[in-house]
Design a protein around this nucleic acid. Structure first.
Lengths: 181, 181
DNA sequence: GGCCTCATGTAATCGGTTACATGATTAG
DNA sequence: CTAATCATGTAACCGATTACATGAGGCC
């Protein structure tokens, strides 16, 4: 089967480095305050991710020596890392859980880095959500309304509905902002 | 710190045993088809949970020998296990994620085992959700609507709203069923 | 003197998934 | 002959959390 969905915040680390080079400690600080609330990671984990990204050639580092302070490793994106991030950030996601984590992070980065494609991402995500809603409704249609599985479907349907409403809210929000700039 | 929130389906295993004694293999079958969709667990995990529940005295087992088949260990609840389950099943949960997993399971068991207290649980859960919504709204009040954190709040608020709607739907559903019986 | 910040990492642990091992019986 | 079902478990691995180690400097 192997329907694994590795959910480690490596893309978020790449996203933070899109702003410019940073060393691990600083990166974690930024991470914890800005993205921590939606996509949590520990300090050790961030260091581990940086190490792994370095091994796979997505980031590179120079060591900076400073007097009477520990040396710091300043990381910057490689072209490969930059591309990996850009490929990721424009893709909509599938599950509700991914929307709560990955999609919010994508919005965050698209706005902050002013990359463009925000409207397109939201539109694409809406389409994905509508598909999922249809699938849920179809699955529920064959069930008795008293059935437990029907209750579960109802739950998921409503969750998706709420997300669609929120996506609309996002569209409107960004449209207004877009006009004023 | 240690704000551990172990989310392993041990309560669900106890819940299945509320129906009567079962051996591990059978329990997993029931688990996978009935609860698997909302609270997933692997086969090994279920065996591990049974072992752990036995060690903590919440279940006990007898080995049944049968000709030309592997022996089976038939588990049954101890009074402690029964009590642990009953304590758990009547408590509302805090997070959205827990509602998607734990709360749905609680509903499932309360209905199936006809334990009573369904209405009370739903009412208690509604109260918890309303509290969370107020907290979210209050946190968002101090933020600019263009702020990312505000968007996140908006998201969570709408999710909670949808859950409240669904809880109402549940109430109505069960009220109708209650009348007809 | 004790604690916080800066700065990096390793090691232990934990919960969960996947793979492996056994071995008889039955269905295709 | 092969695959699946019955029935139980162990072992390896993987991602994430927690604790530990180091060591200078500043604050109360």
């Amino acid at each position: 089967m192997t329907r694994r969905a590795i959910l480690s915040p490596e893309k978020a680390v790449l996203g933070l480095l899109m702003r410019g080079p940073m060393h691990g400690y600083e990166l974690y600080q930024k991470y914890a305050t800005e993205l921590g609330p939606i996509w949590r990671a520990g300090r050790s984990q961030v260091y581990a991710i940086l190490k792994q990204l370095e091994e796979t050639g997505q980031v590179a580092a120079q060591t900076e020596w400073q007097p009477s302070r520990p040396a710091r490793k300043v990381y910057h994106l490689t072209p490969a890392g930059r591309q990996a991030f850009l490929d990721w950030v424009h893709q909509p996601v599938k599950s509700i859980h991914d929307i709560r984590v990955l999609f919010l992070a994508k919005i965050y980065f698209l706005r902050q880095l002013e990359l463009g494609g925000l409207e397109e991402l939201i539109a694409a995500q809406k389409a994905v959500c509508r598909e999922r809603m249809q699938a849920i409704a179809q699955a529920a249609a064959n069930l008795e309304p008293t059935d437990f599985a029907h209750l579960v479907s109802e739950f998921r349907y409503r969750q998706m509905e709420a997300i669609l409403g929120w996506l609309d809210h996002c569209s409107r929000q960004f449209a207004v902002q877009g006009e004023s700039t």
